[in-house]
Design a protein around this nucleic acid. Sequence first.
DNA 1: AGGTGGCGTCAAGGTCGCGTCAAGACGGGC
DNA 2: GCCCGTCTTGACGCGACCTTGACGCCACCT
Lengths: 224, 224
Amino acid sequence: MTRILVVDDDPALLRALVINLRARHFDVDTAVDGATALRHAASNPPDLVVLDLGLPDMDGVEVVAGLRGWASVPIVVLSARESQWAKVDALDAGADDYVTKPFGMDELLARIRAALRRAAPEPPTPVITTSGFTVDLAAHRVTRDGAPVRLTPTEWHVLEVLVRNPGKLVTQQQLLREVWGPAYDEQTNYLRVYVAQLRRKLEPTPARPRYLVTEPGIGYRFEP
Amino acid sequence: MTRILVVDDDPALLRALVINLRARHFDVDTAVDGATALRHAASNPPDLVVLDLGLPDMDGVEVVAGLRGWASVPIVVLSARESQWAKVDALDAGADDYVTKPFGMDELLARIRAALRRAAPEPPTPVITTSGFTVDLAAHRVTRDGAPVRLTPTEWHVLEVLVRNPGKLVTQQQLLREVWGPAYDEQTNYLRVYVAQLRRKLEPTPARPRYLVTEPGIGYRFEP
DNA sequence: AGGTGGCGTCAAGGTCGCGTCAAGACGGGC
DNA sequence: GCCCGTCTTGACGCGACCTTGACGCCACCT
């Protein structure tokens, strides 16, 4: 998960930031002064730093410089000072963005997303890996022993539904409705045929399924 | 020298920007509307784009999206709109920074420096190379065995969409929507014709496609 | 022990989608 | 107004995929 270090000495603002970031599924660390911020950043390097310049112990620009001494982590600066010289100082010290208080939370979040986006060189596609094969949902690709596996559209669709619910039981009705439509609730023979074909293409020993497991009378389950 | 493309329809502001940037020894190119901006960016790729959102011909966010389609160049947006939703839209579309008018020139220059600084270490070429042919997305050129290949506009557009998603499956609907528009969702025969023509022009053995692969019933895939 | 229902396997038939070709429609340049 | 390149449209053959039915097996129930 993406780690964000929030540095702010105002308890109310700090709390608001933490709540909003956690709600967006960020892993949030906090600090209330520059010294602890630098210590936390060193011991547990974050993917991004949100830094309020008005700190009790040291000048915010020094914190930026302190971080830039060894880390290339993106830094988004918060400040009450609107003077463009303050902005120039902070940006030239190594900050990546400068947001003036009061600010809108949605704007800050968008700026954080932008800063994270350019820091991430390649957006890794969500790929499901087992010891036997890998499934790349974005690229619609299945590989086994490094070689791509040819799947028919229906085979892929069945596999996709199972893989999107790793470890969870998918009932026959769910599968049939999702792949063939609501009118095919009871055509469980379709499932038998296609699950068998998937096993033949993916399982090391199709007779003894390890990844595509049958739950008799109920449905199927993908075991990662 | 560092090239900067400045896009603004206000002659006074454009002039001020150009003068200040040239004074800092930047190589400055200009455009007064979105269409020419995209054309200039394609024919002579800049290292950074300064983009005023209030353009006469198209929405500024569309220009951002148009650039982001093939280029990872940093984009600093200028706008008179202070609403945080405008900022969120532009940033999420791919802009790197958002500066509200009126702004201080020194602040803008500092933000430009910051944007250039973090973009510096990664110069990814917009050229896709396979063992059979090369595609230059920026220059709109395809070469095979060193010789340029003649493509019609539609052929190029289809190829471009596929090449922008190397290794990934592009569904028929995606392709049709992107090239012909949302109304052509189901004209899959267009794809059959144009993919065949591309294969004839690019594949070593058109009957056995190696780079432009069909995924039966789903779409096509470019294999790098 | 016999019966039953569900699952896995296989093969065959019919349908559908893809590749191919060619002719007509369209539009821009001269 | 003409000409050429490009786009659209239709027809056709072939192969792959989906559907369907039959059969054997196993587990569980009676």
